[in-house]
Design a protein around this nucleic acid. Structure first.
Lengths: 118, 118
DNA sequence: CTAAGAGCTGCCATCGATGTGAGGTCCCGG
DNA sequence: CCGGGACCTCACATCGATGGCAGCTCTTAG
């Protein structure tokens, strides 16, 4: 299929599909006119890529991941994902801490001695 | 004091102090040579700004916030901060959901039928 | 044959706090 | 008077996925 159809079938914009290819996430044959031709499997591939993005993986990590998935290499795939999980966990922790600090700020400004003109 | 001293006393880089001014977070007099001169209060001001950043507030929000703080206007200050808290909460929720999705991906690839060459 | 539509490449913009560097001014100590 | 250090402004780079435009080619329906 061509890029428009793949886009329609996956929900990824045409722009994004080209970007995925640029990042080495998706390969395509070219027809005589230079247009991308995708195999049926591309639909599942794009779904997988998008699943990765939805799980906050970067294109770089997905690029590392896909060959491992294709090789059905569980241990390394798993190691990569767990590392990402740690990164995500750290980010969540950072934001959670920011939330605490924000609560502190709110507590400070809610000091009852304060007043307001408006 | 001049910018170098303020930087040393607050831990903010000189670049950052200029940026704060550019964003309307910090004001400075100028001496005859055009150099910034800060009052003592600037130290506390910068500390407050940095506290805001540490609580994941953007310079824009801090810019909105500081006048309210100066006016000691609790209700509006509080409203602004609570709105930010909601935003932060939404981000944390998004990342938490990403974590769930990542766990799902890990569960999928950990399917015991898979094998690995390396 | 022609117009429209789909595809192509390449480039710029986004958002935000900060780093970095060039090129200039100014002040002070030696 | 000179050198160096502190300061100034201006401007570009970063990171990442995506949007969007310009200008082009190619195909296909009418």
């Amino acid at each position: 299929m061509r890029i428009g159809e793949l886009s329609a079938r996956t929900g990824a914009s045409v722009r994004s599909l080209r970007y995925y290819e640029e990042q080495g996430l998706l390969t395509a044959e070219r027809d005589s006119a230079g247009r991308r031709r995708y195999a049926e499997a591309a639909v599942a591939r794009v779904a997988l890529i998008r699943r990765g993005f939805a799980a906050s993986l970067s294109s770089r990590v997905i690029a590392d991941l896909l060959p491992l998935l294709d090789a059905e290499c569980v241990p390394r795939t798993r190691a990569l994902l767990v590392a990402e999980q740690d990164r995500l966990e750290a980010q969540i922790a950072a934001m959670t801490q920011a939330r605490v600090r924000l609560s502190e700020v709110i507590a400070i400004v809610t000091d009852p001695t304060w007043e307001c003109d408006a």
